[in-house]
Every structure is written in C-alpha cells, then in structure tokens.
Nucleic acid binder design. Structure first.
Lengths: 224, 224
DNA sequence: TTTTGTATTATTGTATACAAATATACATGC
DNA sequence: GCATGTATATTTGTATACAATAATACAAAA
C-alpha cells in the first residue's frame, strides 16, 4: 500500500450512517410527510441494501423522535408541525444566549479567527445574494459558538435544532434585507465575543434569535 | 391460555429496547466506566441474544451520545464527568423555569390532580425517609410538569437530563433535611401552578433547581 | 534491541434465512 | 349488507452466515 493511500483514506462511513442522514433529511425537508409509514423491505429495495443497516438508521431516528416505533408494524414519520417550529425558536431563545456567554469565556484564538473568517465570507456572499452559501455559513457561525461553549449537551441540542430549521432559514436568507440584518447581527455578536463582553454577547445573541423569530412570524402573517 | 393471561399480556417489548435500557442504566450508574469498550459478541453471549438487537441498542446509545462509535472497532463508553453534571444543572436552570411557566398555561385538571397526589405521597414518604419512593415521586412530579408544558422538545430534553441525574438525586434525597426542603419547594411550585401564577411558578422552579445545585456543590465541597 | 512484514485471530459490517406477528382478502353465516 | 372467521401474504423480529476490516502475535531483518 502506498503512502498516499495511508494519508488519504476514504471516509469509510458505515451504511447505516448514510441511510440515517438520507432519511432524516427527507423527514426534515418534508419529503416524507407526518403519518407516512416507512417500510424496511421497501427502503431496502429502493436503496439497494439489506434491511440491517436500515433498521439501525430507524433506531436512531426513533431515538431522535423523528419517527414513532410501532411494534411489528415498522415506523411512522412524525415530522414537525408549525407549533414545533415555534417551540424550537422559544427554546433556542433560552439556550443560545447562554451558549454565547459561555463561548465568550472559553473561545480559543483559533476559533475566534474562524469566526472572523466566516463573517468575512458571509459579507462576501451577502453582496452576491448566494443563499446556499449563506445558509452554510450561518450554520458554521453558530456551530463554532456551540463548540466554543464547551458544553456537549448544548452542542448536541442546539446543533439539532439548527439543523431542523434549515429549510426555514434558507427562506429567511433569500430575502436580501434579512440577510443584511443577519450579517450585522453576527458582526455584533462576534465583536462582543472578541472583546470578551459576555453580557453583551448573550444579549445580542438573544436579540438575534428574537429577530429571526419575528421575521418568520411576520412572513407567515403576510402569507395568510 | 387462561383468561388472565389474555387480560394481562406481557409488554411485548422488543429486545433492543430492553437491551438499550440495560446498557444506558449501566452507563449512567457507572457500571461501565468512560473508556470501556463494549463488544457486540461479548454482550451477545452475556445476554443470550444475537448481535442484531445489540447493534440496534448501540445505535440508540450512539445517537444519545452515551457511547462513541469507532468504525470496525465497536463502541466506547463516554459516560459523564463532574463537569457534565454541573453543565446539566446549568442548562436545567434555563429550561425548567420556562417549562413550569408553560405548564401553568396548559395544565389539565387531571394533571393538576395527579400533581397534588404526587406531593401528598411525597409528604408521606418524606416522613418515612423512604428514599427510593421519594426519588420515584420526584421524577414523577417533574415529569408531569414536562408533559403539561406541551413541548415535545422540552419533554425529551429534560426527561433525559432528569434521568441522567438519578444517582445524584438519590444521594440528595437521602438527607432528610434536603428531602423536607424539596417537599416544601414542590408544594410552592404546585400552588403557583394551581393558582395559574406563571411568573411565580417559573421563579420557584428556578429556585428549586438552584437549591438542588447548591446542595450538591456544598456536599461535594465537604467531601473534599 | 528495535523495527517491520506477515499470518492469524477476533471483531465489526452486511446480507440472508427463518420465526413471529400483523394486515389483507375472501368466504361464510347472520 | 354486515360482521366474523380463516387462509394467505406481507412485514417485522431475531438469529446466523459470510465478508471486510482491524488488532495481535510472532518471526525475520536491520
């Protein structure tokens, strides 16, 4: 085996992990609707794998609460309701501020630099109106703060919540006004963290979540 | 088959569910230490089942973050550190108050009655110093409030946190002084909820968590 | 002695086989 | 027509078989 092969091994991910991601994404994005029954045999055929890794993915989705397990009948999709989405925003409002405060206390220079670069890229893509990149960078911005908080539970919980909101976030960021406002808010949070102002980081993060929530609410009201 | 057998069917739970509970409990209670490797084959032999349901249980534990998955090597136990426990209390401080407030808004008369009965039993067992029953009732008290909050995410998150702290809670409740204080605090929370005083329910619940945290901290300081 | 290559062993990853449970279709009786 | 019982088909639940990967032991060379 050559040296290059040893240095660049392929990811070598297990099948159940990939299948889990596919199914989770299909549930989050509404490909599978709440109430849909997922069949091991059918998915097994569709994806061209045996039932074993599919069952393993099911167990993860079940644990996550995205599907409900019916003994000897398989799993039915749960998905998210309007209320669930609002609920997530309410809980985030409680947790994101705390996370930003703790991140301010624990952040490393490298993470701070990464945060800065992320914001610079956000600025670039905001001007270009590249929604896909903006969504990616937004996730990255928050992800760094989650990790810097040093709390495995906050990381796990908020990462999931953020992931669940992926669709709605893209909608928000496709509005140039909201994208610009997001950038300004991110900059404020970054500067607070950089200057080690815990309180301000907490307050600005809470405002950021509140503004995101308000934007969605307003958008929804208009649509009705 | 007798009629009695038909009226009281066994739960008919799947194996992977039972195995998951066994393993989770072993991790939470420190039977498996952080760093321990869990082997499918060994557990399969020990428990007298095939590897399939064990793998399914592993996938749930993995998703929960209680074990870390190593491709082609199995899973290693993660468990909880001192910091993790403190961390859980910090996060609960943010979430339990909100949950109590929302429970006050949504609680049903039946749930209120159940809460009342739980506290009456708590009073009974506090006088008898029955720690096991007190731990069970404490969980039940909080569980009712979680459910009454109507938020599937709060239910899921806080239920887990509460479960993780089972061991430490039993230690607290085995101190008659702390048990009495817990009862008084629960009563206060119950009365706020009953009289639909959201703010007070939130404040008292936060105090309750804060007091529980302080007690643990003090206990730890003494031990050192 | 240390290192490295190789054979062996053990473990996981996936597929498949069979048992158990459930749903479905259809016939039978009312 | 409607309900009920039964046979069939389908699906899940579990066990097992085989393949792939990684760890281990050991021998050979530097």
């Amino acid at each position: 085996m050559s040296r290059i092969d040893r240095n660049y091994p392929e990811p070598q991910r297990s099948l159940h992990g990939k299948i889990y991601e596919i199914l989770e994404s299909n549930i989050i994005n509404g490909v599978y609707k709440p109430g849909d029954c997922l069949s091991e045999s059918k998915l097994s055929e569709e994806l061209g794998v045996s039932r074993t890794p599919i069952r393993e993915a099911f167990r993860q989705l079940e644990h996550e609460g995205l599907v409900v397990y019916k003994p000897n009948r398989g799993v039915v999709v749960r998905g998210f309701s309007e209320e669930d989405i609002q609920d997530i925003y309410k809980i985030r409002l409680m947790l994101e501020g705390m996370t930003a405060r703790r991140a301010t206390e624990n952040i490393t220079p490298e993470q701070l630099e990464e945060l800065k670069e992320t914001i610079e890229l956000e600025e670039f893509y905001t001007n270009k109106n590249d929604v896909k990149q903006l969504a990616r960078l937004d996730s990255h911005f928050h992800e760094i703060i989650y990790i810097a908080s040093g709390s495995r539970f906050l990381i796990k919980t908020l990462r999931k919540f953020h992931h669940y909101l992926g669709k709605i976030r893209s909608i928000s960021l496709s509005d140039p006004e909201r994208a610009k406002k997001t950038l300004i808010e991110h900059k404020g949070i970054f500067e607070s963290i950089q200057s080690k102002d815990r309180e301000m980081a907490e307050i600005l993060m809470e405002q950021h979540i509140r503004n995101a929530t308000r934007y969605i609410e307003k958008k929804k009201d208009k649509a009705e």
